[in-house]
Write a protein that binds this DNA or RNA. Structure first.
Lengths: 207, 207
DNA sequence: GGAGACTATGTCAACATAGACATAGTCGGG
DNA sequence: CCCGACTATGTCTATGTTGACATAGTCTCC
């Protein structure tokens, strides 16, 4: 059996509730799925061809708006099986990249006032995202997607996690902004004259 | 000026508190920094060469254990400047990949008992990670790294975020495990005979 | 009637990343 | 005395990922 990449499984996941065109898959990888798994158009179309070649998906074709046919993809029995087997396996990918946390690590090398603005902007970004999540959550709730038997319960559950995880992150950003205000004040105080003398006493080198 | 990749900035971040050898950088990209920014050895050595060519870092060399020289890298004034300028900029990378959430989205296609095990294993993984974070946090606290003036305040702040974000995630995993138990029971009830008749009534197709 | 957005599929080149391999000295345990 | 782990630097190949380009019909607003 051909090995399937993580992106391949992501597409199988996207197709689990019913057939979609390539274009619709591109949208899904931006909006609901894109919150936890992104992919560009240029990855998606070749991957669909590979999945098709492996017999995990199949498609109908009709005349499309452009010079090419419009294809509607759906899972085959083999695809559904491969997906079910992958879902219960422990995640292979644990690597995770967050630029804001990386920047926080090296915070001592930055200007405190600039970092304050940085954290306030971060807080705003996450607040907007939270509002979006809450709207989607309310939508699903009104359709009773909180019932584990509901076909959209999975989507509902991802929002439950986002709704639990985002507020602590916003609070942390605001707390960091306050610490940066404090840091700016402390640095000013420890450098009495506005001249160029660096106050090296307050920064002991440390392993 | 030469453009620096995200990995390049990650290395500048790692070097912000003092010089490190390539090997030490490899360790850092696994243990403390690796929690939010990972990189393999095979990426790090070429990137160090690029940063050196751009004049952002420089190194001393001494005889090493192997056939090559051991190099201790440190930031140049230009490197410190480039880092400071980058730190206050809003994050360019917002993409984020989480296999567990992806799997949750397609949960309806999986076996509930298998998924229950999946979420319990996830909860355990995050619990172990939380224990690790708490130990590091206590260590830094005992060195008064909670003071914004302390050179390790940045590392302390990343742990504050981890300590705030991990418990909600663990609670969510356990909640999901309970939902899976419930789902397994509901599916058994809606399929009275242990035969092969699928209960299609409970899964309305939905957009 | 024209400009720009949307539907829809795909390719291409450049860059990022992972995993395995290669080399060689030291240090500790069995 | 050998084996494996650790220190230390690097290369190689394959795969994953991004961003820009190409094509073309429809629909909407000005």
């Amino acid at each position: 059996m051909a090995t399937v990449s993580a992106l391949g499984y992501a597409l199988l996941c996207a197709l689990h509730r019913g057939p979609l065109t390539g274009y619709e898959l591109v949208q899904r990888m931006r909006k609901p799925i894109g919150y936890y798994w992104t992919a560009q158009q240029s990855q998606i179309y070749p991957e669909l061809a590979r999945l098709s070649a492996s017999g995990l998906i199949e498609h109908d074709a009709e005349a499309g708006p452009g010079p090419r046919q419009r294809k509607t993809h759906r899972l085959t029995a083999a695809g559904r099986e491969a997906l079910a087997a992958w879902l219960v396996e422990p995640p292979a990918l644990r690597a995770f990249r967050d630029e804001a946390i990386l920047k926080t690590y090296a915070l001592a090398a930055a200007d405190p006032d600039g970092m304050r603005e940085f954290y306030l902007a971060e807080a705003e970004t996450y607040q907007r995202r939270l509002d979006d999540f809450q709207a989607q959550h309310a939508d699903l709730l009104s359709g009773h997607a909180d019932d584990p038997l509901h076909p959209q319960f999975g989507a509902f559950a991802t929002l439950e996690l986002a709704l639990a995880g985002t507020p602590p992150r916003i609070r942390w950003c605001r707390w960091m902004a306050e610490r940066m205000t404090e840091l700016a004040r402390l640095r000013r105080e420890s450098t009495p004259a506005e001249g160029s003398t660096p106050a090296s006493r307050t920064s002991p080198p440390d392993g």
